[in-house]
Design a protein around this nucleic acid. Structure first.
Lengths: 344, 344
DNA sequence: TTGAAAGCGGTACCAA
DNA sequence: TTGGTACCGCTTTCAA
C-alpha cells in the first residue's frame, strides 16, 4: 500500500464545464456535446478524447441543479418518508418500487419532511420541482397539497396508502380487505364473539382503523345473529399483554384478529401463560404472514397481504408522467387471503 | 424581438418570482427581499403585503435548484439507501438521525443508487452537490468515491457502518463487539465448542462477518484450551433450519451465537423440534434484543446493541460541515452487552 | 426604499 | 465540426 502525500491544495474549488473546456482547449458548448453524446452534433474523435481526458483529470461532475434549471424539468421522483416505520412488507414494496423507477431512469429521492403537515410539507416538496410525487400519507397531503404540487410542475401525484385524496392518483391499499378476510375466516371456523386488537402505539391508526372497519363490515354483511365485534386496545409490551390476558375470559371472546403477526405473537404468548387454550377457547389470527408466525406453537394463522409488483407501479407512474392529462385513477392494489394454520 | 402578450390564466405554467413581481407591481429583487425577510434591506409594509398577497395568489413556491445554484451551496444531506433492508434497530437510528438533522435545518434526502457501486454511485450523488453525505456502506464507496464527493463540494463525508474508508469520517459500528460479547458470555457459561450462525442471504455478510470475527477474536484472547469456533451457514427458512437441526448433534456444539434474534428463533424452534435441549445441550444467544425473543420459551438470551443518539450525531455532522478542515475521525459508537435470559 | 443587472452551471440554437 | 451566446430562476451588489 503506497502512502500518497497530501500536497495538493486542499481548497480547490469545484470544477465546472468551463474548467473542462479551458483545459481541453474547446468551448463549453463542445464540452456539453461530448459529455452528453448529443446525437444532433458530430464532434471529431480527437476532440472527444481531449474533452473526456480533461473531464477525468479534473474529476468533473455535472451540476444536476444547473442542468434541470436549464432543461426546465427533472426526472426526480419524490417519495416523502412516512413518520411511522413500515413493516417488512411495505419496505420491501417500496424498495422494489424504487428499483423499478431507477430502471426507468428516474432519480428516486426520499425526503424527510418531519413535523410539517399538509400544505407546508407539499410546499417543501414542491421546492425541489419533482416530476412525480409518491406520498404514502394521503391524509397529511390533502387536496390543497396536491394542488400545490401540480402548480409547481409535478406531472404525477400518487398516494400509496389506505387513504386517497382528491386530485391525486391513488394506489389504494385498502386495509379493510385484511379485516374482512380475517372476519370471514373466523366466522367460517364457527367463531361469533370476535375481538379486534387495536395497537396503542401512535401512528398505527392509519393501518389499524381500516382493518377494524373491515371486520365490522364483514360481520354486518353476513347477518349471523350473535356475531359481535369488540375492540381491544393493546400496547406492544409484555406487561400490557399480561394485563389483557388476565381479564381475557371476562371479555368472552372466542376469536380475535390481532392486528398483525407481532401483536398476535405477543397476545398468544400471554394467553398461553394465562392458560387460555388457543385455538380451543379463542382462535387467534394475525396478519402479514411473517416467518415468525410459522415458528409458534400452535402455528399462527395469518392474513397474507399481496401487494402489486413495483415494476408495474413504476410503469404506471411513468405513463402518467408522459401523459399528465389522464384523470386521476384509483387502483385497488391490496389483496388479502387467509393462511390457515393451527391457531384458528 | 416581438413581445408576445402573455395570457395570464391560460398558460398554467409554474409561477416564478418574476410573475409575483409583475402581479405585485414591484421588481424581482423586492420579491426576493420580502420573501426571504432580508434583514439588510428594509421594505415598506404596504409593499410587503402586496408581495405576499401576490405570492399567495399565484401559489408561488421558490425553486430550490435555482436558489442553491445562485448561492453556490445547499443544505442538503444525502443518505444513500442501502440495498439490504435494515432491521428495526438501524431504521430507528436513521429515523432519529434524519429528524435531528432537519431540526438543524438540513434537507435530508435518501437517494436510491441501485446497481451502481463505488465511484459511479459517488458521481451520481455528487451531481446533487450535497453539503454532506452519510453513507451506510463504506465498502461500496471507497477512497476514490470519497475523493469524488469532496471534489464536488461535499464538506462532510461520513460512513455509518461496520467498515470505514480513508478520507471519510466514520461512525464505526463495529460488529465485532457483538460477537465478542456473545463469545465471552458463552465461555462464562462454560461453553467451549461454539458455533456461529452465518446467514446465507446475500448482503448480510457486511453484518455477519464482523460478528464472527469478534467471536473468533474473543476465543483466541481467552486462550482456553479446547475452545473452538465453527461457522454454520443457515438460510432464513424452515427447511434450511430443519436440515441443520437434523445434523446438529454431529457438529458437537455446546453453544451457538445465532447472528440475530430472528435467526436465533428459527434455529431454536428447529432444535426443539429435533429434541435438542436448549440450553442444556446447546446454549443459544441471539442479538438485537427484539421483543420476540422475550416471548420464546426458553426466553432468548441476546446481545443488546446500543447506538448513539441521532441528535448527537447530527450535531457532529453539523460541526464538520461548519469546519470542513477537521481531519477525518473515527467514532466508535456501537455498544454491546449481553442480556442473559434462559436460552444460555 | 426600490430597481437594474450580473452571474451561478449547463444546454441548445444559430452562425461561422 | 465548433464557438458564441441567450437563457433557466434566483440572489445580491450597486445605483438611483
Amino acid at each position: 500500500m503506497v502512502q500518497i502525500p497530501k500536497k495538493e491544495p486542499a481548497r480547490r474549488s469545484v470544477p465546472t464545464s468551463a474548467d473542462v473546456a479551458r483545459l481541453a482547449g474547446v468551448s463549453r458548448a463542445t464540452v456539453s456535446y461530448v459529455l452528453n453524446n448529443t446525437s444532433a452534433v458530430r464532434i471529431s474523435e480527437p476532440t472527444r478524447r481531449r474533452v473526456h481526458a480533461a473531464a477525468r483529470e479534473l474529476g468533473y461532475v455535472p451540476h444536476a441543479a444547473a442542468r434541470s434549471l436549464r432543461a426546465g424539468h427533472s426526472r426526480m421522483v419524490l417519495m416523502p418518508t412516512s413518520e411511522t416505520p413500515l413493516g417488512p412488507l411495505l419496505s420491501q414494496f417500496f424498495n422494489e418500487l424504487q428499483w423499478a423507477l431507477s430502471r426507468l431512469d428516474y432519480t428516486v429521492v426520499q425526503y424527510a419532511s418531519l413535523g410539517m403537515t399538509g400544505e407546508d410539507a407539499a410546499r417543501a416538496w414542491a421546492e425541489l420541482r419533482p416530476v412525480a410525487v409518491l406520498s404514502p400519507d394521503a391524509s397529511a397531503l390533502g387536496p390543497r397539497g396536491v394542488e400545490v404540487l401540480k402548480r409547481s410542475g409535478a406531472k404525477a401525484v400518487f398516494t400509496l396508502g389506505p387513504q386517497r385524496v382528491e386530485g391525486a392518483h391513488a394506489l389504494l391499499m385498502d386495509g379493510r380487505r385484511v379485516g374482512e378476510a380475517a372476519a370471514l375466516h373466523l366466522l367460517a371456523r364457527g367463531r361469533r364473539r370476535i375481538g379486534a386488537i387495536v395497537p396503542e402505539e401512535p401512528g398505527l391508526e392509519i393501518f389499524s382503523e381500516p382493518r377494524v372497519e373491515g371486520l365490522r363490515k364483514a360481520l354486518r354483511a353476513v347477518r349471523i345473529t350473535g356475531a359481535s365485534l369488540t375492540e381491544v386496545p393493546l400496547a406492544y409490551d409484555e406487561a400490557s399483554a399480561a394485563r389483557l390476558a388476565a381479564r381475557w375470559r371476562s371479555l368472552g371472546l372466542d376469536g380475535v384478529f390481532a392486528y398483525n403477526d407481532e401483536y398476535a405473537m405477543l397476545l398468544l404468548r400471554a394467553l398461553q401463560d394465562e392458560g387460555v387454550a388457543v385455538p380451543d377457547e379463542t382462535a387467534v389470527v394475525g396478519s402479514d404472514d411473517l416467518m415468525l408466525g410459522r415458528l409458534l406453537r400452535p402455528r399462527l394463522s395469518t392474513v397474507r397481504i399481496e401487494l402489486p409488483s413495483g415494476r408495474g407501479l413504476a410503469e404506471l407512474v411513468d405513463r402518467v408522467v408522459r401523459d399528465p392529462g389522464t384523470e386521476p385513477e384509483v387502483h385497488d392494489v391490496l389483496g388479502a387471503d387467509v393462511v390457515h394454520r393451527e391457531s384458528s
